[in-house]
Amino acid sequence: MSHITIAASAKAFQQLFNEVENNFSFSKSDTANFGPFSASYSVSVHLSGGNLQLNNDNTIELQNVDIVFGTLDFKLCLDLPGFCIPSFCLVPDPWNGCLVGFPGFCIGGPICADLNLSGLTSQITDLKASLAPKYYIDPARLPGWTDLDAELNGHSNQWQIYIDPVLVNVAPIDVPATIDNILVNAITNAIDNLFPSWLPGWAVDIIMAFLGPIANLITDLLGITTSIAEWLSNLLGNLFGLLSLLETAIADYFASKYPLYQFEDPFPILPASGGLIPVKIPIRNLAATIDSQEMIVQANVGA
């Protein structure tokens, strides 16, 4: 029989897990050129909620965890070299041809729209993991140090129990349909900002009429064959690879960044007092298992 047994009920485990989940953060920014347009984003993410289930096969399963993009600044630049409003016939010839065409006007260079997409969400649809005890030896610990030396220098060894995922699946980013209007308005504003001040309102309206519905313009220019919401979700999730990055970051975080439970080894049971050194107990053979009811941690006291 193990010298030490500690058990946490499913309820207690949920609370432990919440701490791990709440401390997750992920930040990333990137810029990429996709031909007719370029885009960049800066994102910070945290996790929220979800359903945790303990299984009898020594695993935990996590579902429907919201991945909240607390910050998601997105910038879309339409790179439009040589894009011109097609000319129309200015001086028609008598046989319904065109002698002189309206010379048209061209749009060159990038037009950029900043979108604040903070608050978008995705989900961890499925995360399956087992518990993995690890013994952490602080790399800053000097070879000649005793355990007490290491503690007093802040470089103690640690027993750590991690949630070690075997699979992580993240759902596509949930972009609401309202993004259509938001993007259209942003592009429209960007175009409006380009008109010279001398340009009368009716001329602006003619130009806007020539451009046609901005939504159509955007979908044409960006090559969008689905909805803008789906396109944006795909752009961020797949073309920028945010979903893969998130899956990797989540797996890495749970597996090695934030332990579910950790304590110093040797574990101090009596603090230093009156000039006397603390009393520390070596812990050996730490094991962590789980079943549908509880997490069980067992260990021995070293000699």
Binding site: H3, A12, V279, I281, N300
Partner: peptide, 27 residues
């Protein structure tokens, strides 16, 4: 289960306690 009627459970076996006693006496 250990936690059928509680949320946290901890147990120390006498063999462990006796090792702890030795550590305390030595330290």
């Amino acid at each position: 289960g250990y936690t059928d009627n509680c949320d946290l459970y901890a147990a120390v076996h006498e063999d462990g306690i006796n090792l702890v006693a030795q550590h305390v006496m030595r330290q």
